[in-house]
Simulated assay, not measured.
Amino acid sequence: MSLKRKIAAALLATTATMSLASCGGKDKDTIVIGATNTEKPQWDVFKQEAQKAGLKIEVKNFQDYNIPNRALTDGQVDVNNFQHMMFLAQYNVETGSNLVPIGATEIYPLGLYAKDAKSVEEVAKAGEVAIPNDATNQGRAINVLVQAGLVKLKGGQRLTPTPADVDPGASKVKVTPVDAAATATAYLDGKPAIINNDFLINAKIDPKSAIAKDDPKAPQAQPYINGFVTKPEHQNDDKYKKLVEVWHHPEVQKAIDESTGGSAVHVTMDGPQLTDVLHKTEDSFRKENNK
C-alpha cells in the first residue's frame, strides 16, 4: 500500500485522536512531541534531562507511524521524533507538505551478516547475498552492498535501486530478494544476508558482528538518518533546537545504546544540513517515481 493510501486510511483515526487532544488544550510553554515506541528507556531519560535543561515537554505516543506527521501538520504536536528522512521525504511529496528537520538523532544501520565469513572479501567468495524484498529495505540493502563494493548499479547511484538495476557483470555477488523475516533464516543456514534490527534481535544475532553497514556519511545512507521534525517556522526556534541537544546528552545516548544493543549510530547534523539531505531525497523520490 502506498504511503498516500496509508495516510488516507489513518485519517479517520487521526481526526478522532486530534479531537480528544484539542479538548484538553495545552500550556503554551509546553513543547508537545509526537513519537512512537515511547516505552523505550531513552524516552524516560530524555524527559528527565529535558526538565533539567529547563524545557517543559509532553510526549504523545502514536501506534501508527502515519499519524505523527499528520498530527504535526495539523498543529496537535509541535515536534515529532520517530522517522528518517526517506520517510519524511515520501510524506512531504505525497501530501504536498513541507515539514523540516531541526537536527539529527541517529541512524539505525542496515547491516550485512554472515556466519561463515568475517570480511567483505569472504562474502564475495560466497557469491550470493539474501536481501529483504520489501520496497524500502530492498533498495537500502542494495545500497549497503554498493557501499561495501560488492555490487555495482547499471545507471549509477539510485535512491531506491531494485535487483534489475544491479549490473551482474560488474558485481561481485548476486542479490536474492526474500521475505524480510527470511533474511535471518538465510543467515542461520549459512548464507550472507542483509538483516534489519528487529529480525536481528529475534534471531539473537549480535549487531556488532556486521561485516558492513550503512555509513551515515555516505550519500546512499543519509536518507535514513533520523531526526526531530517540525514546521518550517519553528526550525530555528532555540527551544526546539535544545531538544536535539538534550537528545545527545550522554545519559540519553547511553540509554539508546542499551536499548538497541549498541547498534544505533549517533549522528550530529544541524537543521540546515539535514534539510539539505531531505530536499535531495525529495528530488530523487520525485524523479524516480515521476511525481
Rank of each mutant, 00 (worst) to 15 (best):
M1T: 13
M1R: 08
S2F: 09
S2Y: 09
K4Y: 12
R5N: 14
K6H: 11
L12R: 11
A13W: 09
M18H: 14
M18Y: 15
L20D: 08
S22C: 09
S22Q: 11
S22D: 12
G25H: 07
G25R: 06
K26P: 00
D27P: 13
K28C: 00
I31V: 15
I31T: 15
I33H: 04
E39P: 03
E39M: 04
E39T: 10
E39Q: 11
K40D: 12
K40E: 13
P41S: 13
D44T: 14
D44W: 08
K47D: 02
E49D: 03
A53E: 04
G54I: 05
G54Y: 08
E58Y: 09
E58A: 06
D64Y: 08
D64V: 12
I67N: 00
P68M: 00
R70C: 08
T73L: 15
V79Y: 05
H84C: 08
Y91T: 02
N92S: 03
V93N: 01
V93W: 07
V93A: 01
E94Y: 07
S97P: 07
N98H: 15
V100M: 03
P101K: 01
I102V: 15
G103E: 00
E106C: 04
G111R: 03
Y113V: 01
A114E: 02
A117I: 01
V120K: 10
A124Y: 13
A124Q: 06
A124F: 11
A130W: 06
P132G: 02
T136H: 06
T136C: 01
N137A: 01
G139H: 10
G139M: 07
I142F: 09
V144L: 03
L145Q: 05
Q147P: 08
A148C: 03
V151K: 06
K152D: 09
K152W: 11
K154E: 10
Q157F: 14
T160N: 13
T160C: 10
P161I: 09
P161D: 04
D165F: 07
D165M: 03
P168F: 07
P168T: 10
G169V: 10
A170W: 13
K172H: 09
K172N: 03
K174H: 11
P177T: 06
V178D: 01
D179K: 11
A180Q: 12
A182I: 13
A186G: 05
Y187A: 00
G190I: 13
K191H: 14
K191T: 14
I194S: 04
N196E: 09
N196I: 10
N197C: 05
N197D: 14
D206V: 09
S209D: 15
A210F: 08
A210M: 05
D215V: 07
D215G: 01
K217P: 08
K217M: 08
K217C: 02
A218V: 02
P219E: 10
Q220K: 10
Q220Y: 13
P223V: 06
I225V: 15
N226K: 05
K231P: 07
P232Y: 14
E233S: 04
E233H: 03
D238R: 15
V244F: 05
E245A: 07
W247F: 15
H248W: 08
H249A: 05
P250W: 11
P250T: 07
E251L: 14
K254A: 06
A255M: 02
E258D: 11
T260P: 12
H266M: 13
T268L: 12
Q273L: 04
L274Q: 04
L274I: 05
H279A: 04
H279L: 13
D283E: 13
F285T: 00
N289A: 04
